[in-house]
């Protein structure tokens, strides 16, 4: 019993750490990446993987019960809504004519815009 609890607690900590790491990566990406599309990509990663693994860790900590059910619903909502928001943003940007970023070496040969 105690060993199981300890393992669950350890898994919770690991999953939350993974989540925090992804949030960090996402924030760095938001600040460092060159254009709108890659920044949207970073932000969406934050929401899905980061928040998803934190919620998974919390579920492991709670065990079976009403709270876990709510957390599952929350995760499902997050996994549905966040990629949709990212998709909508990127699509709107593309349809209104925002060109994706190309690295300078690539654009030299072509029409340099």
């Amino acid at each position: 019993m105690n060993a199981v609890e300890a393992i669950l607690r350890a898994l919770t900590v690991i999953l939350c750490a993974i989540g925090a790491f992804y949030f960090f990566i996402g924030t760095v990406g938001m600040l460092r990446l060159p254009d709108f599309y890659s920044r949207t990509h970073a932000a969406t990663k934050c929401d899905t993987v980061g928040a998803g693994s934190i919620l998974l860790g919390l579920m492991l900590m709670q065990g079976f019960g009403a709270i876990t059910l709510k957390l599952i619903a929350l995760t499902a909502l997050l996994l549905l809504s966040s990629p949709t928001a990212g998709h909508a943003l990127a699509r709107a940007a593309f349809r209104t004519g925002l060109k994706p970023w190309r690295s300078p070496e690539h654009t030299e040969g072509e029409d340099a815009t």
């Binding site: 909502l77 549905l80 949709t84 998709h87 909508a88 699509r91 709107a92 349809r95 209104t96």
Partner: peptide
């Protein structure tokens, strides 16, 4: 509007 409604967004909104 300039951008037509996306199928993905439409589906998720209908679902939720």
């Amino acid at each position: 509007s300039a951008v037509p409604v996306s199928d993905v967004v439409s589906f998720v909104v209908r679902l939720l």
